[in-house]
Design a protein around this nucleic acid. Structure first.
Length: 752
DNA sequence: TCTTCATAGTTTTTT
DNA sequence: ACTATGAAGA
């Protein structure tokens, strides 16, 4: 009956079988933390606990999805559907929508993403006529966010001498006003930013005892993953929810705490011991993921941190190869070294087995270029996610406005897109009027006559036309399904034809992105299993909370992964490259000199190392292109901190320091440089059969040739037209259809 | 009011 | 390198 327990070692079993009471699981990297959580829920279900009564908070939506799948597999059936499982933000937004009326928000409240918050902050600074060099948007935004995460309201701020004093010092005496306005404007717009989802949940549970009681009764068992990365508000909410039953299990690893910058608080681990004095502590110390070399190297690094919970991570796995530390001359060399190494190792592995991790998103460029040149398929996470692209946000803004017309950021975004002759001057007037009357812009334009604004008749007509347009959408949105209304909006607003008329490669891409969005909505509509019709607002509920990781495409399955170390948390790969191991980059120069910042950077490196199963490559360049110029770089201090007996150093920098070439003409460099860059140990010489086309080779492309495109796959050239750099090809891709490609952009390869 | 072109500022990590 | 902003022209 309990045979599923046989999948666990004895430490894991002990942690799993405790059902009632408080417990904390300190789980070293790769020790089966997710496994314990998954099996713990399985154990709950097998012991007759209703999935409805279990709340499980995870760090990403993807983790939640995978866990649900595994639970269903082990238990059978679809019990996981009734579990409350997801990120803090998504679970709480679900609660907030259900209880919205209590806190005076519309049920359809908008979730402002970072870009929306930024735009609003910017707008407020401008309206208050403040110097934008003193009141930098980013700084203000960060300060607002950190105050919110410490549960300090605008009033609280005004009564806080220290905070006022520190803003006096930086000459930002008006910060309090900005903060207050920001909060008021969000409220007026029926919008919550990411922090509000937490704050408002806490307020709801504090101000409405009967609501608190309802959820306390509901969530009889609470599980929290990645507990080391929860912040103060999250801690307070969990504490409240768990107060009735005190059945709470938190899982984490203090060595992997890497989100202090956004308020994560290691204090939460210490508080746990105080709040639940009878708690049980379980330690998982056996690592199943990595080789001995990797595990021990990671241990030797993290020893340099003073603050940490004592534990001894060990493994039964083989010793494995040494960790390779490579020195290259430039960042581009580094990229090529990584690409060449992958090419060499690929014969007995899959592309999906490789991950390239870096400290900052900006580092991806040189790597991408090198991978493309060797035809290594890759996917890249972070940077601009799908939902943050301009064309997507534009369309979504129409949807948002239809669902919640008070949404000011959405309105500002689309009131003149596509151009309908409503310019910045008009918008400024409307904004002033709205502020003076303490109403939203939507209320102003839907009753223009009531407010005396100096606008000429033409402009007034344009505004009422716009209002009618949105109203017509609103009238349909509750009765038609999401896809129908989404398609209708895209067409009627003219977005579809506008994007479709742009035939540049970028324009085509934008058009396709919007189509992809609509396809997603179509999927949602067709697979909806709720009782009523799948309305648009239902689709829009969580869109702001989705990230690229959450909706991986099938065709991306077997590709190398590029991501920041932060994004790699919880993942594992047989082969891991950590690039840019340089002072000022990693540890980041922003981490300053404070001990705690440096320790966080070190934990981040610890996370990076422990992603690797079989082999780990660390690299650093002596010269890196940054801020428009090449700058000298020193190897990271972290490289010295690893016990050197686990490391083998390779120096590629002596490859004669060629004059530095801008990357655009890089393609012309002959392959022998590549050869010298390949470590002899892994060389198998024969290079790719495919030839990448660079500018000078355009003439080699002919009608009838088979080619390969990074995104569209294999295809055949049907036609070539244009001259020189304007040369265009019509290519037929199987399964996709005909595409017009501007050859100077499309990285086509001839397939022999 | 819209479009285009030049210049300036910018880079840590994210739900 | 890349976007965002501002000035000038249409």
């Amino acid at each position: 009956m309990n045979d599923y327990l046989n999948d666990l070692n004895s430490d894991q079993q002990k942690a799993v079988i405790q059902i009632d009471g408080a417990s904390m699981v300190i789980a070293g990297a790769g020790s089966g933390k997710t496994r314990v959580l998954t099996y713990k829920i399985v154990h709950f279900l097998k012991n007759g606990i209703n999935p409805f009564n279990i709340l499980s908070l995870t760090f990403t939506n993807k983790a939640a999805k995978e866990m649900k799948n595994r639970i269903d597999k082990i238990v059978g059936g679809h019990q996981s559907k009734s579990l409350w499982m997801g990120t803090f933000h998504s679970v709480f937004s679900r609660i907030l929508r259900a209880e919205a009326d209590k806190i005076n928000f519309p049920r359809n409240f908008t979730i402002y993403d970072t870009a929306d918050s930024k735009s609003l902050t910017k707008s407020i600074i401008k309206e208050l006529n403040l110097d934008k060099d003193v009141y930098k948007v980013g700084t203000i935004q960060n300060r607002i966010s950190s105050l919110k995460n410490n549960f300090i309201s605008p009033e609280g701020y005004n009564n806080h001498p220290e905070l006022l004093e520190s803003d006096k010092k930086t000459k930002r005496t008006e910060f309090g006003r900005i903060y207050l306005m920001y909060v008021q404007r969000c409220f007026k717009a029926g919008a919550m930013d990411f922090d509000d989802l937490l704050i408002n949940t806490y307020k709801l549970l504090s101000d409405f005892p009967e609501t608190l009681n309802k959820y306390q009764k509901k969530f009889q068992y609470i599980l929290v993953d990645e507990y080391q990365d929860t912040n103060h508000i999250q801690y307070l909410i969990i504490k409240k929810l768990a107060a009735l039953n005190e059945n709470i299990c938190v899982v984490g690893d203090d060595s992997q705490s890497i989100y202090a910058f956004r308020g994560a608080n290691i204090q939460n681990i210490l508080n746990f011991k105080i709040d639940y004095p009878d708690y049980k502590l379980y330690k998982l110390e056996q690592n199943y993921r990595s080789t001995k070399n990797i595990v021990q190297a990671a241990n030797s690094l993290i020893k340099h941190n003073e603050k940490q919970i004592e534990k001894d991570v060990w493994t039964d796995n083989t010793k494995g190869d040494s960790i390779i530390v490579c020195e290259t001359s430039t960042d581009n060399d580094e990229g090529r070294l990584v690409a060449n190494t992958i090419k060499d190792l690929i014969s007995d592995s899959n592309f999906k087995d490789f991950a390239i991790l870096y400290r900052t998103n900006a580092q991806s460029r040189s790597l991408e270029e090198a991978l493309r040149k060797l035809a290594i398929p890759y996917k890249i996470y972070g940077g601009l996610s799908f939902y943050q692209r301009k064309e997507i946000k534009d369309v979504l803004s129409y949807f948002r406005l239809t669902i919640n017309p008070q949404d000011e950021e959405a309105l500002k975004r689309v009131i003149n897109y596509p151009s309908r002759g409503i310019g910045t001057t008009t918008i400024q007037k409307l904004l002033i009027c709205a502020n003076e009357n303490n109403i939203s812009i939507w209320e102003v334009i839907s009753d223009l006559g009531k407010y005396k604004i100096k606008l000429n008749l033409g402009t007034q007509k344009k505004l009422t036309d716009f209002t009618f347009l949105i109203q017509s959408f609103m009238a349909q949105t509750e009765s038609s399904d999401a896809y129908k209304i989404a398609e209708h909006i895209s067409k009627v607003t003219g977005i579809f034809s506008l994007l479709n008329s742009d035939h540049s490669p970028e324009g085509i891409n934008r058009f396709e992105n919007v189509q992809q969005l609509l396809n997603g909505i179509k999927d949602f509509t067709e697979n909806y299993d709720g009782e009523s019709i799948p309305v648009l607002s239902e689709f829009m509920k969580d869109v702001a909370l989705l990230t690229d990781t959450d909706n991986e495409k099938k065709e991306d399955y077997n590709k190398a992964t590029l991501m920041t170390i932060h994004a790699s948390k919880g993942l594992e790969f047989p082969y891991v490259f950590v690039v840019g191991m340089e002072e000022g980059l990693f540890p980041s120069m922003m981490s300053g000199n404070s001990q705690s910042d440096l320790e966080e950077e070190r934990r981040l490196f610890y996370v990076a190392i422990t992603r690797a199963e079989k082999r780990l490559f660390l690299s650093h360049a002596n010269n890196r292109f940054k801020w428009g110029q090449y700058i000298d770089c020193e190897p990271s201090r972290f490289l010295e901190e690893i016990d050197q007996k686990f490391i083998m150093k390779k120096d590629f920098s002596s490859v004669k320091k060629q004059e530095i070439v801008p990357h655009k003409i890089y393609a012309k460099i002959k392959p022998q440089i590549k050869k010298t860059l390949v470590p002899k140990q892994f060389v198998k010489t024969n290079f790719a059969k495919n030839i990448t086309i660079n500018q000078s080779d355009l003439s080699k492309l002919q009608t009838g040739q088979n080619v390969k495109h990074a995104k569209f796959g294999n295809g055949k050239i049907l036609q070539i037209e244009g001259e020189g750099s304007n040369k265009k090809a019509t290519v037929f891709f199987s399964g996709i259809g005909q595409k017009q490609l501007l050859l100077k952009f499309a990285k086509l390869e001839i397939i022999k």
